[in-house]
Nucleic acid binder design. Sequence first.
DNA 1: GTTAGCACTCATTTGTGTGGAGTGCTAACA
DNA 2: TGTTAGCACTCCACACAAATGAGTGCTAAC
Lengths: 346, 346
Amino acid sequence: MELNERKLKILEAIISNYLDTAEPVGSRTISKNYDLGISPATIRNEMSDLEELGFIMQPHTSAGRIPSDKGYRLYVDMILSAKYDSPKHLSYVEALLNKAGRIETLLQDIVSVLAKETNLTAIVSTPQYSKCKIKNIQLIELESQKVLAVIVTDGNMANNYVLEINEDMDQRMLNKLSFILNNQLHGLNVEEINLPLIEKIKAFAGNQDEIIGKVLEVVFQAVHNNEDTEIYTSGAINMLRLPEFSDLEKATSIMETLDKKDYIRQLLLNDFDGESIETDGVKIKIGSENNNEDMKDCSLITTTYHIGGKPLGVIGLIGPKRMDYQSAILSLRCLIKEIEKRMNDS
Amino acid sequence: MELNERKLKILEAIISNYLDTAEPVGSRTISKNYDLGISPATIRNEMSDLEELGFIMQPHTSAGRIPSDKGYRLYVDMILSAKYDSPKHLSYVEALLNKAGRIETLLQDIVSVLAKETNLTAIVSTPQYSKCKIKNIQLIELESQKVLAVIVTDGNMANNYVLEINEDMDQRMLNKLSFILNNQLHGLNVEEINLPLIEKIKAFAGNQDEIIGKVLEVVFQAVHNNEDTEIYTSGAINMLRLPEFSDLEKATSIMETLDKKDYIRQLLLNDFDGESIETDGVKIKIGSENNNEDMKDCSLITTTYHIGGKPLGVIGLIGPKRMDYQSAILSLRCLIKEIEKRMNDS
DNA sequence: GTTAGCACTCATTTGTGTGGAGTGCTAACA
DNA sequence: TGTTAGCACTCCACACAAATGAGTGCTAAC
């Protein structure tokens, strides 16, 4: 048995209706609301076939049908392969992007706006530190035996570290050290810093090598720490208002999952292999495709953003499987365009 | 009718039992579980009096009694005026505090640990920027016409700002400007920066006054922005597991409230007048005392932390009215001691 | 002043019946 | 051979009634 055009139309009708109502869809509903020119009985026969093919299922006998993950997958693939429609212009995002500021703040703002617009949960990972280019390092005097190291990378991401050293240093001396550090490190990828390089730089610094060592150590730690990317989340609350989580048990469970930064990080960066050329970079994982019990009623839409041509971070949306994929994908696609336009000319 | 000792004991029994079970407490329960040596009938008479006095109430006829806000107030005041018991040592906090780092990260970590320990929602406001002393200002070259200003204040709080200027400057020049800025601003309160001062500094800077003006402008904006303090929250999810929020409607509502940073900020800083000498600085607002519908089933415990003798921020716990005040207060008191010990010798 | 006894109240639980939405099957029809 | 009307059947959802039980207030006796 194959999936002919009529079956496909019925499947689309079922999914479309289910996205709206969150209720199982019956044959009569389709016959009435979708102009397919066939009777409920015929539709029932087709539905029976669609169920056998695995695209829809019945919560219980004598209920309507709901899409299965396989059904959603077909539907989503059709959307993904379709042409863009009316790329909407996100004026508020542009406003955000034009505000000079730190990339962390920017990403937090973006995620917050995205969550509000889509009524979904928006998540983003900050650029992977280890893959960023070093732009500038400055040491700043704090107090006796304490120094602040500010490391600026691509996209004007600034990381601050407090270093404890065994010597007092004034700002003039620190400026000198900063100069040496910059000479040696400017333009390098963070992960390119290695032991020979460190020795070489220490030699330059002469007897001030302790603080130089500390700085490099901090950079090292950040790189080898698998949390070299932060996760920002917004709009988890939106899940609470959905009928799929009207059971408190489920609601609590999904909120807990969304609260686990480590889990979300892993989810986002999971198969972030750095070369996702797929349909405009938008990836979708539906329900059980996420390989996680708590996410089995949710879908994840992700896309990567690039700086200087390199994919550095991921922006995504988490929503119920029953979410409006069309508009979510569109939002994400347009957003990413605006972001990349901005980041790559800055 | 006055509140004699026996009535007080019964009230305590009711509250204590209610804290445990979240169920209305009946006369028989008290008679059985608390060794007061009187029969349920007698207890019923006393309860009737306690209700008349406003300390307890009945959800409906033929139900047991639950404490009223007035009852909780009495109970909490007794705890507050009691002596410390066994000030527990918070080894994990000490570990956090010994880790050199930015104060923002530190506060985020503390709030997260506090929430985990108490199973409540922990909140903290960062030091009020306007009341902080400036320690160091450094300008860092980013790219053509863009400069990063790092402003370090008390407690090693570092704020980064991206400035756009109309001129290219190299790091050497920026170091010079930083030197001038530091000479003029070091040791001042952020809010002490005023127009005459700005003019004076501009004169020093000569033809480089644009960037100097920008920096001062940014500081100004931060001060006059009433959001010159950030709010960090952790553990809101803990509320979802409580029986008082087993109704999804209520659960959603409290989660939404806790998600509103502006509201929480206002709640925290509400009567933060800078001179709370009350019982070790711990303030408690019970239910309707918070003057907010969404908080009527919650209590808020707050305490301020000081840097250099000045109260700069607030740490607090939000939980159900039925929370374990004793242990929450203790946690907060011990925490604040550790924090102040650390911040004031740094 | 305290307590046992008792009638009364009311939320909660349990059981039962009904309505309705939807299906699958069969037989008739184009 | 594909489509459709008709019909029996299933099962959830909801409403309603009855039973349960925790707890009270009152009264009368101690």
